[in-house]
Computed example of a mutant assay.
Amino acid sequence: MSNVFNSLSGRILTPSGWINGTIAFDQRIHTIGHDAAVAGNRALTILPGFIDLHVHGAAGTDIMEGGDAGAVVARTHARHGTTSLLGTTLTAREPAIRRALEGLAGVIAARPAGGARMLGVHLEGPFLNIHRLGAQPPDVMVASLAQVQALNAIAPIRVLTMAPEVPDHLELIPALRGMGIRVQIGHSAGTYDDGVAALNAGATGFTHLFNGMTGTDHHAPGMAAAALAHAEYAEIIPDLQHVQPGVIRAALRAIPRLYGVTDATSATGMPDGEYALGTQRVFKCQGCVRLATGSLAGSVLTMDQALRNFVGLGLDLADASNRLSRYPADYLDEMERGRLQPGAWADIVVLDEALHPVAVYVEGEAIPLNNAETQNP
């Protein structure tokens, strides 16, 4: 084995805090050490690569297209510091879901050159409540264990979004958890009590908190209230459009390991115009994506912008980083990702003073960056 390592010097975020030093790595991190020669305040910032557990598309490409869509999405998001992700489906008829998973299977098995590591699938549809679809198409189904097992055999499902109040769904949660799938509550018209029951049955998170679920009415609390009262983990879209900043701050205080996702669509990194979100037509304008009705329909967020948004909300940089790297890694039990320490995968993002990526490494591979796109998604 070669003993030649790449190295980076700067202000490094380690699991035990910041150090000014040098990190040496090949595919994995070899050493991290203090270096007195590294300047403090003006040094480059070196963080764990971002981990996005909810990604539908980018660069004009939608995961539901199947084929090489996953590779396009993985390469595009890698340029913004995302070093691993889950390819995320939409509600659709089963043949379309199978086609999407067949396309993702190859990307999961072999990381595309220049792309992020696809860790598996987030099956966001079709096991949702038809009354809380948001931008999802209306092809909902009632889940069965046999159906999930058949889909999981095509490509590994790491996260599955489900409306637990739909008949038979609550009883299915323990079996899904036994398969190693994280069940998330989302696109749900259920009550607070339904949410608590789902958590007690083994559900572990909430999909894009506050969006696509019942809320926090103090007389009739819903799923969002159950999350604030009981959740250890939940995902949130920090584009400052899906959730108002004050509400994000409230969730940050209530949920210990609230983590950010992009819910990015095919419009990410593209000019204003019309794009696909599964079978839906969506429109990018003024930094967001909407259906023709005006309803929000995913986002054009990238994880580097999510970091800057969290910092803009008042989070210190280490906390913001944890919510985009370490917590999602912990949620999936990916203990060799989401942290910079010897033996971990060399998934690294290097930022300038304005928190824009100047270098990204995925498992030690340097990712070519398009600086104009990186700074203006």
Rank of each mutant, 00 (worst) to 15 (best):
Gly364Ala: 01
Pro167Gln: 08
His169Glu: 11
Glu232Leu: 13
Gly10His: 07
Ser84Glu: 07
Ala78Gln: 02
Thr83Leu: 03
Arg28Glu: 01
Val159Pro: 05
Phe206Ala: 14
Val349Thr: 10
Gly66Cys: 03
His218Val: 09
Leu313Gln: 12
Ala372Lys: 04
Gly178Ile: 04
Asn3Arg: 05
Ser144Gln: 11
Lys284Asp: 03
Gly40Ala: 14
Ala74Leu: 04
Gly273Trp: 04
Pro174Ala: 09
Met1Pro: 00
Gln27Ala: 06
Ala36Tyr: 00
Leu355Gly: 08
Ala150Ser: 13
Ile23Cys: 02
Asp263Trp: 12
Asp193Lys: 11
Thr216Gln: 04
Glu353Gln: 14
Arg257Phe: 00
His54Lys: 07
Gly125Val: 05
Asp263Thr: 12
Val166His: 01
His30Val: 02
Asp62Phe: 09
Leu369Asn: 08
Ile157Phe: 10
Ala276Thr: 09
Tyr259Arg: 12
Gln27Cys: 02
Gly269Val: 06
Leu176Arg: 13
Ile29Ala: 04
Thr14Ala: 12
Pro164Thr: 12
Gly314Asn: 09
Leu351Arg: 02
Leu53Ile: 11
Leu8Thr: 03
Arg308Ala: 06
Leu172Glu: 12
Ser16Phe: 01
Gly21Pro: 11
Gly106Glu: 10
Gly222Lys: 07
Glu365Cys: 02
Thr88Ser: 13
Arg323Gln: 01
Met1Phe: 05
Asn41Lys: 14
Gly125Ala: 05
Gly115Thr: 11
Gly260Gln: 10
Leu104Asn: 07
Ala267Asn: 06
Leu160Ser: 10
Leu351Ala: 07
Ala254Ser: 15
Ala74Met: 05
Leu258Ser: 03
Ile181Gly: 01
Asp347Met: 00
Leu170Pro: 00
Ala92His: 00
Glu336Gly: 00
Pro377Glu: 02
Ser325Asn: 11
Gly260Thr: 07
Ala36Glu: 14
Pro256Phe: 06
Glu334Phe: 01
Glu235Thr: 15
Ala69Lys: 06
His77Tyr: 01
Ala175Ser: 13
Gln305Arg: 14
Thr45Ser: 07
Asn152Asp: 15
Ala254Cys: 15
Thr204Met: 12
Leu301Pro: 06
Ala175Arg: 13
Arg158Thr: 14
Asn129Gly: 04
Ser9Gly: 03
Leu209Gly: 11
Asp35Phe: 02
His242Gln: 06
Leu317Met: 09
